[in-house]
Amino acid sequence: MKSLSWELVPHKGIESGAVKVFFGMERALLRSILSEFVGPPKSFQPDEDDYEAEDGTWIRLRFDSDKLRDIEFLGGSLFFAGTQLHHGAHWEVLQKSLAAQGHSFRETEWLGDGFDFVGLGINIATHEQLGGDEGDDGVEWIIASGDWSC
């Protein structure tokens, strides 16, 4: 697989060139599209598919009635408006960059850990927040959802 760089499309999903992973897409279609780039998914839960690539990309897709509901970005390059959200991103720099673009955050009300950027439809959690070393503000995950009801 070639190295992919992904772009966050707020409240819609993620994309890399012509590859689009958008909320509401059917599971079978996403499996077909992503298998060409990453290979077949691993499924550890009945409503989830994990896609891991040699370049470090790791994306978990969560479904509701076979339609994409959530995207967990756990590894690889993910950008929004020129800001690196993952792959070496650190909270202090990341939140300042997003704030400069007019995006505010709050302590999460959606998940158990991290910060919600409601305007972008994402949750960001650091290594420290998820049990890593104290002071490790590296980004552990970016979770985007098509069901941002809080």
Rank of each mutant, 00 (worst) to 15 (best):
T57H: 01
G88H: 02
D47Q: 12
S3I: 06
Q95E: 10
G138H: 09
Q95H: 12
S16V: 09
D133M: 09
L98N: 00
G76T: 05
A99M: 15
H127T: 08
E72G: 03
L74C: 10
I124G: 00
D64C: 15
F105D: 01
H90D: 08
I122G: 01
L8G: 02
L68E: 02
F23C: 03
K67T: 15
T108H: 03
F115K: 09
K12Q: 09
T126Q: 01
I143D: 00
D47W: 10
K12D: 02
E15F: 11
V21K: 01
D64M: 14
D49Y: 04
T57S: 04
E54S: 15
W141M: 14
A28N: 15
G146V: 07
L74M: 12
V93N: 09
A28S: 11
A99L: 13
T57A: 05
R60P: 01
S5I: 08
E7M: 13
V118K: 09
H86R: 03
G88A: 07
T108D: 06
D50N: 11
D64K: 13
L29W: 12
K12V: 09
P41N: 10
E92K: 14
P40V: 14
A18D: 13
G135T: 08
S97G: 10
G82W: 09
I59P: 00
E92F: 06
R27T: 03
E36S: 12
F44V: 15
W6C: 00
D116A: 05
S3Y: 14
V118G: 06
F80Y: 12
G75C: 12
F117W: 15
E52H: 04
S65R: 11
D113T: 10
D70G: 01
V139A: 01
E54H: 08
S145T: 13
E140I: 08
S35A: 15
I14E: 02
S65G: 07
D137Y: 09
G146C: 08
A100R: 12
G17D: 03
Y51L: 03
Q129Y: 11
S77A: 08
G119F: 07
F105K: 07
S65V: 07
G121C: 10
E128W: 10
S149Y: 14
D137A: 06
S5K: 08
F23N: 01
V19C: 03
D113F: 14
S97V: 06
C150P: 13
I33N: 03
Q101N: 11
L34Q: 08
D50E: 10
G121T: 12
S77N: 04
D64E: 15
R69E: 14
E15R: 12
G75V: 10
S5A: 11
I124E: 00
H86M: 03
S3E: 13
L30W: 04
L78Q: 01
S77V: 06
L61I: 07
E54R: 13
E7K: 11
